[in-house]
Write a protein that binds this DNA or RNA. Structure first.
Lengths: 149, 149
DNA sequence: TATTGTTATACTCTATAACTATA
DNA sequence: TATAGTTATAGAGTATAACAATA
């Protein structure tokens, strides 16, 4: 069982927090973030930058605005995330000829090599979570989480 | 349905992100945070400070370390959260006589008034989420989230 | 005028380490 | 020596607003 169930016997009255979805969701997200960090140590890659690299791998030539929409990140913050990946030579950004307001994004060769390595880490990360929580539970979790915005 | 399902028809290949528990968990947490913010607007209360006030309401006299453990917040960060609530005269902190290293925390009268109002807001917030996502789904979600740490 | 993206800025949350004071 | 809490600091994520360039 998780931390919350270990705590209920520890004396403090949780006042219903242990059945409050927001409290549990926050704790689960921090757990996932910590576990992600364990598996991506030394890469300098966070869940957000991993998502960007994966999306660019699957959608070469897409625009920052496309990534913003999928990831739920505002465009100003997307710009800074992309700046960092471009600084690391994993992504290249160019002005789109057909609409000079827009940008075209693409993984560099180095970025393609990197994403292969990162996807392997991601598979190990997901396997570890499935082992700990139960693959069937994680699948049901995903089904429910898709209803959120 | 949620944002992800509206996006799958929008052209971009999500490369499996839409079935990746971490991606969905992050999005759901941000959704919950945004919705919490809507319902707690003008209060200056966040999920973390709400949890502290609720725990102190149910456990008058407990210590910062107790809150840290339940909430999964490190003690240095708990100190700053408490400083803020104390500055707002919602909480009082005193040195514990039986162990002068420890502190005793308590809601002020103003804090007790505040938590009653906040709990009403929280009920409306949870009702809104139940309406949007489905109460039965939220219940199943909580069951699964309890397995995390 | 509307859209795409960038810059500037501020706030919250999280994390590590060094520190104080007690036990 | 160990424990409870504080202070200092830095990094990541998020948000709003103002702006530039282009359509």
């Amino acid at each position: 069982m998780g931390r919350i169930d270990r705590l209920t016997s520890a004396g403090l009255d949780l006042g219903g927090l242990d059945t409050t979805f927001g409290f549990l969701l926050h704790a689960a997200w921090r757990d996932a973030l910590r576990t992600f960090g364990d598996h991506f140590a030394e890469t300098g890659i966070t869940p957000l930058t991993y998502s960007i690299l994966l999306l660019l791998h699957r959608n070469p030539g897409c625009a920052p605005g496309d990534l913003s929409e999928v990831m739920g990140v505002t465009s100003n913050n997307m710009t800074r995330l992309l700046d960092e990946l471009i600084g690391r030579k994993l992504v290249e950004r160019s002005v789109r000829a057909t609409d000079r307001r827009a940008r075209t994004l693409r993984l560099t060769a180095e970025g393609e090599t990197m994403i292969a390595e990162l996807r392997a880490r991601h598979r190990r990360y997901e396997a570890a979570v499935n082992d700990r929580i139960g693959a069937e539970r994680i699948e049901r979790l995903c089904e429910i989480l898709r209803y959120f915005d």
